[in-house]
Structures are given as structure tokens and as C-alpha cells.
């Protein structure tokens, strides 16, 4: 069972995560179907900027984050932004969206000028996340764990970051034991997604340059 302190940590992170939404008008724009490649590029760029802003708002609410060294705060978000966004996109893609919305979104991404070499692993990742049937709690905790990873470049006080990440990992592990008692590997599977995210992050920089060239 989760103790009182862990319950509080969980509900705090979930509440912060639930507030993590891009503005409605921007989400609507994504579903309008008339678009040229150039408009698509601009829109996806605008979306990414908005997602980073939302991500920072979430991160600021993570217990202890604002006590970290300011430059370490920036290094953590900078190192994890792409991974947190992939995780978020996976969640959105796996939701039951209104009829046809997934198709429009997928088409928009496929027509964005990004090479298939990058698109295919991304949609594979969405699929593997979908198979885990993660709850909102798991998404919130896994996102927090991704952001509070001490092994990002330029982190000065690794120990301070570890101290924030560890209790969240513990909560996730217990949460998995409670809610997935038929699958003892569930927690390990969730952590496995973090490895996949690292790979996607690694390819992201290359992906952007190829996109810009196109």
C-alpha cells in the first residue's frame, strides 16, 4: 500500500499533470484539414513551443523542483523536453479521440516532411505505449520520472535530483503492484519505455535537421 506521504505525492503530481494542456484553440487548428507543407511546419512548431511551456508549468509544480539550482532546473527540462513530449503524444494518440481525429493527426505528421526513418520508430513507440494501457497516474508519474532524471548533460548536483526522483519511482512501483497484480513485469515494462524514449530523443536532433533541409 501507499503510505500517506506517498498518496499525497501521487495526487499532487496527478493534479499538476491534469492541468497540463495546450490551449484549446491550438488543438482545434490541428484538426482543420486544409494545410500546405509550410503551414504544417509552422503549426507543428507552434505546437511544440506551446507543449514546452505547458511542460515547464508541470515541472515547476513537481515537489522540490524549485529548490534545485536554477541552471540545473534548465538542464533537466532541456534534457527531457523531447522525451516528455513523445510520452505525451503517445498518450494523446492512444486515447479514444472523436471519429477520424487520429487519422487527421497521423496524416498531418506523415505529411510534415519528416523522413519515414524517424516517423516509423515514433509510431512504433506510440504503439508499445498503447499496449501498456497506462492510466493517467502512470503517465503523470512516468513523465515526472523522465523529467527528474539525474543523468542529463550539465547537471551539477546529481544527488539533489536523485533525491526528488527516487520517491516518485517508489510510488510508481507500488502503484503498479496494486493495479497490475496480474502482471508483475508491468513496472519493468514502464521503465523500458524510458529506454525507448532515450533512443527517440537521440534521433530527434537528426530528425529536425533533415526536416529543416526539406
Amino acid at each position: 500500500e501507499l503510505n500517506q506521504e506517498q498518496e499525497t505525492l501521487l495526487s499532487y503530481i496527478v493534479e499538476a499533470y491534469n492541468k497540463c494542456r495546450i490551449p484549446q484553440d491550438m488543438a482545434k487548428k490541428l484538426l482543420q484539414d486544409q494545410f500546405s507543407t509550410e503551414e504544417n511546419f509552422l503549426l507543428l512548431t507552434e505546437m511544440a513551443t506551446s507543449q514546452v511551456q505547458v511542460l515547464v508549468e508541470f515541472t515547476k509544480k513537481l515537489p522540490g523542483f524549485q529548490t534545485l539550482d536554477h541552471e540545473d532546473q534548465i538542464a533537466l527540462i532541456k534534457g527531457s523536453a523531447v522525451e516528455a513530449m513523445f510520452l505525451r503524444s503517445a498518450q494523446i494518440f492512444n486515447r479514444k479521440l472523436p471519429q477520424g481525429h487520429n487519422v487527421v493527426l497521423e496524416e498531418r505528421i506523415r505529411k510534415s516532411g519528416i523522413s519515414d526513418d524517424y516517423i516509423t520508430p515514433m509510431f512504433n513507440f506510440y504503439k508499445t505505449v498503447g499496449e501498456l494501457q497506462m492510466t493517467q497516474e502512470e503517465h503523470a508519474l512516468l513523465t515526472a520520472i523522465t523529467i527528474l532524471s539525474p543523468d542529463r548533460p550539465y547537471i551539477k548536483d546529481l544527488h539533489a535530483v536523485e533525491k526528488l526522483q527516487e520517491p516518485i519511482l517508489n510510488v510508481l512501483q507500488i502503484f503498479c503492484k496494486i493495479h497490475h497484480n496480474k502482471d508483475p513485469q508491468h513496472f519493468a515494462r514502464l521503465l523500458g519505455r524510458l529506454t525507448e524514449l532515450r533512443t527517440l530523443n537521440h534521433h530527434h536532433a537528426e530528425m529536425l535537421s533533415s526536416w529543416r533541409m526539406n
Binding site: H70, A205, L208
Partner: peptide, 22 residues
């Protein structure tokens, strides 16, 4: 790539300072 990284960092710095707070 480097200009993108600078762009990302600028967005993060502004957001951390609360410039996008509503």
C-alpha cells in the same frame, strides 16, 4: 541543430520565469 537548442532553452528560461503565466 544548435539554433534549435538555443530556441528550446530560451522558451524554457522564459517559462521558468513565469513569462507565459496566465
Amino acid at each position: 541543430h544548435s539554433s534549435n537548442t538555443i530556441g528550446l532553452e530560451a522558451i524554457i528560461r522564459k517559462a521558468l520565469m513565469g513569462k507565459y503565466d496566465e
